[in-house]
Structures are given as C-alpha cells and as structure tokens.
Write a protein that binds this DNA or RNA. Structure first.
Lengths: 142, 142
DNA sequence: TTGCGTGCAAAGGTTTTGCATGGCA
DNA sequence: TGCCATGCAAAACCTTTGCACGCAA
C-alpha cells in the first residue's frame, strides 16, 4: 500500500484549475495569479481550494512546483506530455530583478555533468543563478 | 557615482553580528537562532536589526544565504576570507545540509557559455545549487 | 446517503515597514 | 549637529487549518 489516496472526485474547480494550467503553454503561475485569473473570469475559486489542488497535482507529478527563494510564493507549471522541454533553470538579475527562464540544453549539460562527475543531483525547481543580465551589464560596474 | 551606499556606521550591533557568524566555524544560523543567542548573551539585538544586517552582508557577499526548507526561515553562513572560495560554485544538499565546494572547469565553461549565448554573467559568490549529494541520493525517494 | 471537496475565516510563521529614539562620525 | 542605525509594534505575505456546508458518486 502506498498512499491512501482520498477519493478524487471530478469537481468543477479541479477541472478548471487543470485546464487553466494546461492553457498556459509552459508558463508558470503563483497561487495568487491563478486566483486572480479565476476571479476575473467570473466565478472565482477559493484560494484554499487552489492551494490544495496545486499541491495535489504537484504531488502526483502532473505539474511542477518551483520554490524560488525570491518572491516567496511558489510557482506551478503544467508538464507537457511530449516531454521535450521540461524543467528550466532561472537566472535572476541582481540589479534589475528580472527573472530569466533558461531552457533545456544547457540545463541538461550542467545537470548531467554535475551528477556524473560530482555525484550531486541538482534540483532545478529550487536553484537560481544570480548575476547580471545583458541589459544591466555595462550600465555601471557597481 | 555608482550606488549611494548608505553609510555603514560601525555599530556595536553590526560588529557583534559579524563576529558571531565568524565564530561559528562554518555552521549556519537562522535569524531566530541568532536573536536567541544575543538574547541569552545578555543585551539582545532587535530582530529587525539582525534581519537588516544579514541581508546587507549577504548582498555584499560577506556571508551566504540559504533557503533550505520551503516556507521555513533562511539560513546565513559566514564566508571564509580566502579568496578561492569566491571563484568556485557551491552545491548545497537539501537533505543533510552539506556544502560542497565545486572547482571545475566544465562549470566555468558553462558559465562562459551562459555569458556568451545568453548574455548573463553569473555571480558565483551568490549562486548556490540546491539538490542532493551523493550520500543522500538513494537513501529514500521522499 | 456518504463522505470528500469547497471556501470563509482565522491561525501560524517569516520578513518587511513605519516611526520615534539612539548613537556614530 | 546631522544622519544613519536601532528596535518596537504593526503590517504585509504566504500557507495551513478548522469547520460548516455543498456536491459528486
């Protein structure tokens, strides 16, 4: 016996939440953004409910949860079925605060190398590279 | 003029905080632990002040800030003076807390790649890779 | 009908902010 | 003396929990 899975009723809210994430084509959102979206749509969904669904979906591996120390609130992202581009790293500019999403190939190189050569499995859901983005490089040298 | 650096008065609190971190020989502490320490010592230091100093020191690269378990409080750790520590990357195991110093050409290659191709200059001093170390991989799958 | 799902309100915990006062330069 | 630093209290945030009611099965 693994988990004692609750029951998993197919509720209106559950469907809307999953549909919403699926419709974002890879972008990730916070609970707050989602709540605002549903509120604007008309019939909102309680934030408690959103939290519970996102946690459950993340636990099931249907969506991905990013916990970046910045900004505080967690982000959730739908996982495409085709599995090509998945997790990405985040680059955070220390100067302007921009968060850059760094896709795939480099990520996998870094991750594979560190795993094979250094016996360390990187958690991209949490790791953030700090530095300066192109726009801020050259502005001044602080 | 670059930044308008506040002023940096040498205050009693500032000295005690830095001394305390330095005295921990590598261990890291939360704001709460630090506050409790100073309280026990006799004349406590306001937690607001502790927050402000730790944030500043982390921003200056004098100490490192970790955000280990989600939702929990951040940890801060003194960075040894030896300049080597500033050049390489750090891997932090989310499970056992071990900090690994990674000196590796491949990583520098990747860093160069990210700079050239993605126009982002990584600050190795502030960047920490989170994940699981070799010892903890395989223990369980949480 | 049964019992999970929902959502409001409140709790819990960390970090930030407002503001009067203290202390360094 | 001029300002920054301090620290109390309160606010701001994110997330979780308690609980009564609603709704899927």
């Amino acid at each position: 016996m693994e988990h004692n899975r609750p029951a998993n009723y197919a509720t209106r809210q559950g469907k809307r939440i999953l549909d919403y994430l699926e419709s974002l084509s890879g972008r990730h959102v916070t609970v707050n953004e989602a709540a605002r979206y549903f509120a604007d749509e008309g019939s909102g969904i309680g934030q408690t409910t959103i939290y519970r669904h996102l946690e459950k979906l993340a636990g099931e591996g249907r969506i991905r949860k990013y916990v970046l120390s910045e900004g505080k609130s967690a982000c959730y992202q739908y996982i495409e079925d085709d599995a090509e581009c998945r997790e990405h790293f985040h680059l955070k500019c220390e100067e302007c605060g921009t968060l850059i999403h760094l896709e795939c190939d480099v990520l996998n190189k870094i991750r594979r190398h560190i795993f094979k050569e250094h016996r360390f499995r990187i958690n991209a859901l949490k790791t953030v590279f700090y530095g300066r983005c192109g726009n801020c490089i050259g502005k001044d040298e602080t």
